[in-house]
């Protein structure tokens, strides 16, 4: 720990200098506070948000909880569909060939561009938001699951065949474990997509959620609130991603060399 300290000290010092310069820059009129709200503003904004709330009565915690629930609903739903479907598609070359263009196409459509259409389908309520998150997560997850199952090192399959494995047993004992690292990577990527979509999805038809908070803050020139919302989304994304990494370490201790491609 002690030895590590000198390594993290320089970036911390640099950050502190930047923040102080920022604060002073605003105080002496070089930076406009609504463009670059200083740390003191952000801190007082945070206190306001966690006590009175913004809009009044809706605290930062309930914004956060609402967003979390939406993301997790869409994310879990997408995973629950994409994993079995991807396993089936990946197991049959024909299915993969047939569906590949569709998967690539749907994955490439910017999720938020579907917003107007989805509102027409599901209205501007909860379902629309969860659907959009689910859509974004689903295609990313699906293409990773397919690739994981499909491109198992052929020499492993050959080795297993020499030991008399075939069919379902070959799949369970070799193809699936070999695909797991890729499936995990897909789950991490899908989560990132979920958080990218959420802010946009919450910008309409709701006053609750971090995306709504960010938009509402804009209307009132409360840039510090926008920054707080942004920071919280970042922290949540970071925490869940770290959780997934820990889970992967636990479940796939053999795949340690994936550290390099983790991001």
């Amino acid at each position: 720990m002690m030895r590590r300290f000198p390594q993290i000290a320089p970036p911390l010092i640099a950050l502190a200098i930047l923040l102080v310069a920022w604060e002073l820059g605003v105080r002496y009129g070089f930076l406009k506070p609504y463009q670059f709200p200083p740390v003191s503003r952000i801190a007082s904004g945070f206190v306001e948000l966690s006590t009175i709330g913004f809009p009044t009565g809706v605290s930062i915690w309930s914004h956060t909880l609402t967003t979390l629930v939406r993301v997790l609903l869409g994310y879990v739903g997408a995973l629950a569909l994409a994993i079995p479907l991807g396993v089936v598609i990946g197991s049959f070359q024909v299915l993969d060939k047939l569906t590949a263009p569709l998967v690539v196409f749907c994955r490439s459509v910017a999720t938020l561009s579907l917003l107007p259409l989805v509102i027409v389908w599901f209205g501007a309520g909860e379902l629309t938001k969860v659907f959009l998150i689910g859509y974004g997560c689903f295609w990313v997850m699906l293409s990773n699951v397919i690739a994981g199952v499909r491109y198992v090192d052929p020499v492993l399959v050959r080795a297993a065949r020499t030991f008399g494995l075939h069919g379902g047993e070959l799949f369970r004992r070799v193809v699936l474990p070999a695909a797991l690292p890729r499936i995990f990577a897909g789950a991490r990527m899908a989560l990132g997509v979920g958080f990218m979509v959420i802010v946009g999805a919450e910008m309409i038809g709701t006053i609750e959620g971090l995306g709504a908070l960010i938009m509402e803050a804009r209307t009132f020139y409360r840039s510090e609130i926008t920054i707080i919302g942004m920071l919280i989304i970042g922290v949540i994304g970071f925490a869940i991603s770290a959780g997934l990494t820990a889970l992967e370490r636990l479940l796939l201790p053999w795949a340690g060399n994936l550290d390099a491609v983790r991001r």
């Binding site: 020499v155 080795a159 070999a178």
Partner: peptide
């Protein structure tokens, strides 16, 4: 097909990465 008495040691490493040494052999 395989399974007619042939055992193979492959040129490239064909161990199952998710199994330990002893479990690979036990396979």
């Amino acid at each position: 097909g395989p399974g007619q008495g042939q055992g193979v040691v492959f040129q490239q490493h064909a161990l199952f990465p998710w199994l330990t040494a002893v479990d690979n052999v036990a396979f």
